[in-house]
Amino acid sequence: MNHDAYPDNYIRGILNSVKSIAMVGASPVNVRPSYFAFKYLAQRGYDMIPINPGHVGKDLLGKPFVASLSDIGRPVDMIDIFRNSSHIMPVVEEALTLDPLPKVIWMQLGARDDAAAAKAESVGIKVVMNRCPKIEYGRLSSEISWMGVNSRTLSSKRAPAPTQGMRLSLNRMSVGGGDTAASDRAAKNKTEQS
């Protein structure tokens, strides 16, 4: 997988197929991105599991905190890692001990570890790096267009009127739209320099 620019179908396929998401580094502080990404994904119907050893015994929006991936005690489709690049490898190594293996490992905006990604991909796990599932969900459903963001999709079909708590369709009949290649190149250059 080219981790500088993901095809829309790759991201759409992941967000349409996973049902449970364990979020490593989920925070109970309501101004942290992990908190509101967790909340958004829960509202869109994903079965969310907060992982944070510092908050075991408490819950996040009604879901009990779990200390580590090994403690979840049930299969999980996707692991969403809200940690800096330097803390990715141990989380991926722990994920690779799970049985069954997760189908997807997702690293948040700003997080990228190509060696960890290669390890996960070598056992058939799909990997996404330096992206936010909330932003990608909003982009493919075109909900993020309210913010003037280039969704990179075009469609001549009428979308369903969004209502509270509904699962927005990511299967809009759409074609590729405006490119953001310059931004992808800049992210790649930054990775290569670090």
Partner: peptide
């Protein structure tokens, strides 16, 4: 905003 962002090859516009 989205239209001009797309025409310019940017990520977003205001």
């Amino acid at each position: 905003e989205e239209r001009v962002a797309a025409l310019e090859g940017g990520t977003a516009a205001l």
